[in-house]
Simulated assay, not measured.
Amino acid sequence: MRLAEGIVIDKDKTFGALKFSALRREVRVNNEDGTVSDEIKERTYDLKSRGQGQMIQVSIPAAIPLKEYDYNAEVELVNPVANTVATATFRGADVDWYIKAEDIVLKKKQSLSRSTSQQAQPQTKGK
């Protein structure tokens, strides 16, 4: 079975709160002769996932500017997809999972609820 588009993820249920850790690596394009070029293909970042209970690695395209968020800044993934790479072995195959996303962005803070904002305003006396 081949999933050409990967496995679409419900990011809230799968990852829970995500916190930025650091840039893990940059993957570079190979030249025709097999040497490594200066062109970056994608960047992989370490994110702390409350839902997974561990650090996860997420790759985003190099066309997206380098992310230099504060350590532990709350972030969210834009359109994450999980996929696999299988390597044949003597006993069968080893399978590695990877996660890609279109971008990693700072999570927007929830605005105050309407009732909270109304309580903060002074009340005027009726006529």
Rank of each mutant, 00 (worst) to 15 (best):
11 K>Y: 03
3 L>Y: 11
98 Y>R: 05
112 L>W: 10
68 E>I: 03
66 L>E: 14
115 S>E: 15
62 A>C: 02
82 A>S: 12
99 I>Y: 11
101 A>M: 05
62 A>H: 03
26 E>G: 04
104 I>W: 07
11 K>Q: 15
48 K>M: 09
43 R>T: 05
29 V>D: 03
114 R>Q: 11
78 V>E: 07
88 A>V: 14
115 S>R: 13
88 A>Q: 12
54 Q>A: 12
116 T>G: 01
9 I>A: 08
105 V>L: 11
114 R>P: 00
109 K>E: 15
6 G>V: 06
22 A>W: 02
106 L>H: 02
22 A>R: 15
95 V>L: 10
90 F>H: 04
6 G>S: 06
20 F>Y: 15
43 R>S: 06
39 E>M: 07
87 T>R: 10
18 L>T: 03
124 T>N: 05
118 Q>H: 07
83 N>H: 10
51 G>K: 01
55 M>K: 12
39 E>A: 14
33 D>F: 04
73 A>D: 12
112 L>V: 10
63 A>K: 12
104 I>C: 06
22 A>E: 13
96 D>I: 09
2 R>C: 01
102 E>F: 01
85 V>Q: 13
77 L>K: 01
125 K>D: 11
30 N>T: 06
96 D>Q: 11
18 L>K: 05
19 K>I: 00
116 T>V: 15
121 Q>Y: 08
48 K>H: 09
12 D>A: 12
95 V>E: 10
13 K>R: 09
103 D>K: 08
87 T>D: 03
11 K>R: 10
110 Q>W: 01
35 T>G: 08
117 S>N: 06
111 S>R: 15
12 D>Q: 12
66 L>A: 07
92 G>T: 04
22 A>G: 01
112 L>D: 14
70 D>H: 07
78 V>K: 11
64 I>W: 01
96 D>R: 13
1 M>V: 09
94 D>R: 13
85 V>G: 02
94 D>I: 14
54 Q>N: 12
51 G>S: 05
89 T>E: 06
95 V>K: 09
127 K>R: 13
123 Q>D: 03
120 A>V: 09
101 A>V: 05
75 V>M: 08
58 V>A: 06
79 N>I: 01
58 V>I: 12
39 E>Y: 02
5 E>F: 03
64 I>F: 01
82 A>D: 01
13 K>I: 08
114 R>K: 13
15 F>T: 05
40 I>E: 11
107 K>S: 09
33 D>K: 04
54 Q>M: 13
38 D>K: 14
13 K>M: 08
48 K>Y: 10
10 D>P: 05
21 S>K: 13
71 Y>C: 00
21 S>H: 06
48 K>C: 00
17 A>C: 01
108 K>G: 15
10 D>W: 02
1 M>F: 06
81 V>D: 00
8 V>M: 03
81 V>M: 02
63 A>I: 12
18 L>Y: 06
78 V>L: 08
106 L>T: 03
7 I>L: 13
31 N>G: 05
51 G>D: 05
85 V>A: 13
115 S>K: 15
111 S>D: 14
34 G>E: 05
53 G>C: 08
